[in-house]
């Protein structure tokens, strides 16, 4: 081969190769087929409005077939009581399935703790659920890819593929995952994906009498949740883990994480 031919061929090859490589970039099938840039589900919790009735927990268990008698739950409500000496005690008996009907704080093995009314500086409730993180630790650690993120930002579990190793339960910094008592696979909140993707509301948000819980679309500038996240002072839980949670809290206190 002559030097001129070699140079010519090399030029054709290099330019040809670079064109095809960039073409792959242009038509990333993932982006073209599945990405929905108009939709990103997010959740807004207004802790000021929560009264700890536990309706959300009951509604969730009913809607999603989590046995009432099993001590696991996809969503729960925590109670925080800050005393005048600055110390905070908290509890969540049965995840607040039956609401907070007792003034005493459930300290599990240490029994019920009574805090006299006059000692209380402030008390409030914080509903918790899966944060549907943008960078979910659970998805990263699943050894078989049974847990995954949808393009509209919901983290789901494939019950037919989960091997039940529990690594995702260990990997979640928020403790939202558990083993389903009858399905024997990892389970957690789905933002009621089966409802919201058909235009419905989540079971918990629908059951909440005070609008303390709301689901919304962050990409829609007119969505009340998106507006609140943008215009109000919201907080997220445990941002130090770098998971970018998508459940936003109004009135988040420093004791809550």
């Amino acid at each position: 081969m002559k030097r001129r031919d070699f140079m010519k061929n090399a030029l054709v090859f290099v330019s040809g190769a670079s064109i095809s490589a960039s073409a792959l970039e242009f038509i990333d099938p993932k982006k073209v087929l599945a990405d929905n840039p108009d939709l990103r589900w997010a959740f807004l919790v207004d802790t000021h409005k929560c009264v700890g009735c536990g309706f959300c927990v009951k509604a969730c268990k009913t809607e999603n077939d989590i046995p009432m008698g099993a001590n696991v739950t996809r969503t729960w409500v925590e109670r925080y009581v800050t005393k005048k000496d600055g110390k905070t005690v908290s509890d969540s008996p049965k995840g607040a399935l039956n609401g907070f009907t007792n003034k005493k704080i459930d300290q599990n093995h240490s029994g019920m703790l009574e805090v006299p009314d006059e000692d209380i500086a402030q008390a409030f409730f914080v509903p918790k659920l899966c944060n549907h993180c943008e960078i979910p630790a659970c998805v990263q650690v699943c050894p078989v890819g049974a847990t995954y993120s949808t393009k509209d930002g919901v983290v789901l579990v494939d019950r037919k593929w989960c091997i039940g190793c529990g690594y995702c339960i260990m990997g979640c910094p928020y403790g939202v995952r558990f083993f389903h008592p009858t399905e024997h696979v990892a389970d957690k909140c789905t933002f009621c994906y089966h409802r919201i993707s058909k235009g419905g509301n989540t079971a918990c948000a629908q059951a909440c009498p005070f609008e303390a819980r709301r689901i919304g679309n962050l990409r829609d500038p007119n969505d009340p949740v998106a507006k609140a996240v943008l215009n109000q002072r919201v907080g997220i839980l445990r941002d130090e883990y770098g998971t970018k949670p998508q459940v936003y809290y109004l009135g988040l206190n420093k004791e809550v994480h």
């Binding site: 009432m68 739950t73 995840g95 240490s110 558990f178 083993f179 008592p181 024997h184």
Partner: peptide
């Protein structure tokens, strides 16, 4: 309601403030 033992409950004893699924 009928109580149902979930995985881990048989050998775990919780003390103070522990999340419901832990």
């Amino acid at each position: 309601v009928a109580q149902m033992v979930v995985h881990g409950e048989a050998w775990t004893m919780k003390d103070l403030f522990v999340l419901p699924n832990e």
